[in-house]
Design a binder for these strands. Structure first.
Lengths: 118, 118
DNA sequence: ACCATAGGTTTCCTTTGGGAAAGTACTTTC
DNA sequence: GAAAGTACTTTCCCAAAGGAAACCTATGGT
């Protein structure tokens, strides 16, 4: 008798696994959590503002990650009719639903730091 | 006057950003969420069991990710005195504290799928 | 002897991620 | 008219991630 998966073999678990994969696909990369985290605090920020806020990010990566997030409808990109031209990035209502995830992760990270430093 | 970061420049925000970085460092890689998610369901599993449960993971990556997680005290590795030798992996109490994160991510992923398919 | 099982490690290879710097285009300020 | 600011894109390059397959040790079954 050949052995097969059993724990993850229920419909519920398969859904859960797929859900985790889906979410992490959207949020993969070094900067997405930082961008979303920053936009959760800052409401609406320009490109250069974001680059200043997010320590270490280069223009290329920021540009690319913003595009990814925009494609997935998590953030909006609005070109303002100002001189010089400015662009503002903000979370969509949909993107804002990520707050619980970000908060859980931040919360865990704080607790983690307290644990290892004691 | 040189422009500087302001949104992320408070002590609270710096802590939050660092916390997110910390957490994601521990959980980076393609398989860690899957391993933890599976162990949250399965309690205690052997190497081959994990490989069967986690669709697509190769022995090398599984081995490496398990080592990473063990080093960070998120899982335990126990060699059993059986013949043939077996090893069981389980979440530590500390690793179990990741459940809210995993659950939030899974929950969001399910909602996400419902959104895009409508 | 031969195969299957458990639990890996090692080698080789390809793909992806990511950074630095330069280039584009337009506008305002000195 | 030169510099500097906004908002990128493009190119070039390197390092890290990840997969496939072979290999290793050991035991038990037929």
């Amino acid at each position: 008798m050949k052995k097969e998966a059993f724990v993850n073999n229920t419909t519920v678990c398969k859904m859960k696994i797929r859900a985790i994969t889906d979410t992490m696909d959207l949020l993969s990369g070094k900067w997405k959590f930082h961008i979303i985290g920053t936009l959760l605090e800052g409401q609406s920020l320009g490109f250069m503002e974001l680059q200043r806020e997010i320590d270490g990010v280069g223009a290329k990566m920021l540009s690319k990650e913003l595009k990814d997030l925009e494609m997935n409808k998590l953030i909006s990109r609005t070109v303002m009719d100002t001189k010089p031209i400015t662009v503002k990035y903000a979370l969509t209502d949909y993107g804002k639903t990520l707050r619980p995830i970000i908060d859980e992760i931040a919360h865990w990270g704080v607790a983690y730091r307290n644990t290892i430093t004691n």
